[in-house]
């Protein structure tokens, strides 16, 4: 998450048409809030009903990252955190 936060900070400076959503599964709201507060994250954390969203996106391993294009289609996805690929797609 810290790496993603760093990337997000950079993205915010360069792009205004990109949204990062950190979709949590299974943690209490308080747990997320505590971590966000302690580490000063400005990332947007999102919760889901059970595993509804994970399931809709076929996510079995964590972390998994998806990039969704401006047209609403899946542009890229990867299990793990492949920052280089994300950077390339976002042209950073």
């Amino acid at each position: 998450m810290p790496q993603l936060q760093n990337l997000w900070s950079e993205v915010q400076e360069k792009r205004d048409d990109v949204v990062f959503l950190c979709v949590n599964i299974g943690d209490e709201k308080e747990v997320i809030q505590k971590w966000w507060k302690e580490d000063g994250f400005t990332l947007q954390a999102m919760r889901q009903d059970g595993n509804a969203i994970s399931s809709a996106f076929g996510v079995q391993y964590y972390p998994t990252n998806y990039l969704i294009g401006a047209d609403g289609t899946i542009a890229w996805c990867s299990v793990g955190y492949d920052e280089a690929a994300i950077r390339e797609y976002l042209e950073l």
Binding site: F20, M46, I53, N65, Y66, I68, A70, G72, Y81, I86
Partner: peptide, 24 residues
């Protein structure tokens, strides 16, 4: 999604933007 203020957000409402979804 449900955000940290308990507000619901549809993915569709973000159309026009590039969205990175990080499952964690």
């Amino acid at each position: 999604f449900t955000d940290m203020n308990d507000q619901e957000v549809n993915l569709e409402s973000l159309e026009g933007k590039t969205v990175l979804m990080n499952f964690w």
